[in-house]
Design a protein around this nucleic acid. Structure first.
Length: 506
RNA sequence: GAUUAGCUAGCUCAGCCGGUAGAGCAUCGCCCUUUUAAGGCGGGGGUCCUGGGUUCGAAUCCCAGGCUGAUCACCA
């Protein structure tokens, strides 16, 4: 009673000691030779029941139905579940029935990891089952698992509390196997993207996470301190400025899967750390990059689903090329009926008010336009759509438009009402770039705490000359959410950020 | 940060107008050699999120705090 253990934990610890007393190591060091996974048996056995007559399989006990001298066990491995038939006189062929009567029936529990050998058969109820010939304990579990039961399609006592699911993701994965599928899909997605980029012979690189100046995006950073250097460092909000230095250095195509950190609010679309893939390709422009994005994302959808059509909430999103394209002004006119082209700041502020779009004094022209777009257009763009040609004020790293005054060569792809990627013809004019940084400083003075800081070394790099370059940033978490029909970013991150738990019992 | 909902057994939840805490699964004991939400009989298990307050008496009412979800604001 003074142990602090619950009743069930105490019983399991007592069982553990009893196993040791019987000479059974509850955490054996030996390898256990696994020659088949549950899903494979279920897939191939029905067609050929001469298969799997000498199986060796390992996994976690998920349920037991004990009927005296014979029992059924649900075993779960990486691939899924399969039923075991454990008969006393088969796993204990001699006089000594301890392994069945005591070890299996009394000392093993749901959650323990076992290995068995045996042969596959089909029960009278028609269930593919492994008839166990031997049973080995591979790991004793000391805490009771949440018990989820199913009958046909109904689920009973589902483990659904989001707090527990995210804090104890391992439990979530054990009892909600579809969670593992999401992360398998995420891995396929990342591989698909990487394979696509490697096939184009772009170089995967790594650049600093700890940066003395944060840049490449409009966001508030995390700040930290390096003791030996006694200096402030920031966790990167983007890797853009470093990747462009690599283009200056002579690589023609570089990309990085980049963990970025932004010190801002959290909700179902935002985690303080998130993953972006950034790509920079020399001698290309944003028009070219749009085609790359279409081709790459279409391929990812095909690699994941075998089709370009993906169910996202109530919608069926189709990534088949070509995607629709609108300019920023066109799409705003489409949704509001107002052509804002060429309108000065004061007039834009009036239009925003008319449209009930909230704005404040710190917002300059570019930000007001972005705000109108964000309120009146973006949420309604469900099918993948390119929005092009953004105001220069909100794109300090993008090249001025070749023919449209006051705009830059930039696009975003919007899908399911959210930004999927951001891209531009990169600004490589060092004099223009310096002016842009300076006007960002002005915005900062005006109160915009996300305005960019001036990076002298980046300017110095540009002054040596960067070839015309197309750049892209694509949110991996967001893309995974869409591709797996997940409602929350927490569902596509193994360990979403949480406040500390007050205490962990035991 | 604001609003709002929730927090009771290992899990999922009930608990009315304040009166000493309940169910199913899990667990423990017994029975059961093709079951499948296995079944039958019997038992044990609680910091009712935390701290205050009101009251003879609080899981329940009041106040403060914690954590989580949802919505909003900032952002990808």
């Amino acid at each position: 009673m003074t142990s602090g253990f619950t009743e069930q934990e105490t019983i399991r610890r007592n069982s553990l000691n009893e196993l040791i007393r019987l000479g059974i190591n509850p955490y054996p060091p030996d390898t256990f030779e696994v020659n088949v996974k549950a899903a494979e048996i279920k897939k191939y056995y029905p067609a050929d029941n001469s298969l799997y007559q000498q199986t060796s399989i390992a996994g976690r006990i998920m349920s037991r139905r004990i009927m005296g001298a014979a029992s059924f066990v649900e075993l779960q491995d990486e691939s899924g579940r399969i039923q075991l038939y454990v008969k006393r006189d088969d796993i204990c062929p001699g006089e000594d029935k301890t392994l069945y009567n005591t070890v299996f029936k009394k000392l093993l529990d749901i959650g323990d990891i076992i290995g068995i050998t045996g042969y596959v058969f089909v029960t009278q109820m028609g269930e593919i089952t492994i008839h166990a010939k031997s049973l080995t304990l591979l790991c004793k579990s000391l805490r009771p698992l949440p018990i989820v039961k199913e009958k046909e399609d109904a689920v009973f006592d589902a483990f659904t509390d989001p707090e527990q699911r995210y804090r104890q993701r391992y439990l979530d994965m054990i009892v909600n196997p579809e969670v593992r599928d999401v992360f398998i899909k995420r891995s396929i997605l990342v591989n698909s993207m990487r394979n696509y980029l490697n096939a184009k012979t772009y170089l995967e690189v790594e650049t600093p996470v700890l940066q003395p100046l944060y840049g490449g995006a409009a966001a508030r950073p995390f700040k930290t301190h390096h003791n030996a250097l006694d200096m402030v460092l920031y966790l990167r909000i983007a890797n853009e400025l470093y990747l462009k230095r690599l283009i200056v250095g002579g690589y023609d195509g570089v990309y990085e899967f980049s963990k970025d950190f932004r010190n801002e609010g959290m909700d179902r679309f935002h985690n303080p750390e998130f993953t972006q893939m950034e790509l920079y390709v020399a001698y290309k422009d944003y028009e070219w990059m749009m085609e790359l994005v279409e081709e790459m994302v279409e391929k990812i959808a095909l690699d994941l689903h075998g089709t370009t059509q993906v169910k996202v909430g109530e919608n069926l999103v189709d990534f088949k090329r070509p995607w629709k394209r609108f300019t920023m002004f066109e799409v705003i006119e489409h949704f509001t009926g107002i052509n804002i082209d060429g309108k000065p700041e004061e007039e834009l502020a009036g239009i925003a008010k008319e449209l009930n779009v909230p704005i404040d004094r710190t917002m300059a022209k570019g930000k007001i336009i972005d705000q109108i777009f964000g309120e009146k257009c973006e949420p309604f763009l469900i099918q993948p759509t390119f929005i092009t040609d953004y105001p220069v004020e909100m794109s300090p790293l993008a090249k001025k438009h070749r023919s449209k005054d006051g705009l830059v060569e930039r696009f975003e792809a919007i899908c399911n009402g959210k930004e999927l990627c951001n891209s531009f013809s990169e600004l490589n004019d060092p004099i223009d770039q310096r002016e842009r940084f300076e006007s960002q400083l002005e915005l900062g003075k005006r109160g915009d705490d996300e305005s960019m800081v001036l990076d002298e070394d980046f300017l110095r790099a540009l002054e040596f000359g960067m070839p015309p370059t197309a750049g892209l940033g694509i949110g991996i978490d967001r893309l995974t959410m869409i591709m797996t029909n997940s409602q929350s970013i927490q569902d596509v991150l193994f360990f979403p950020q949480m406040r500390p738990e007050k205490r962990i019992t035991g």
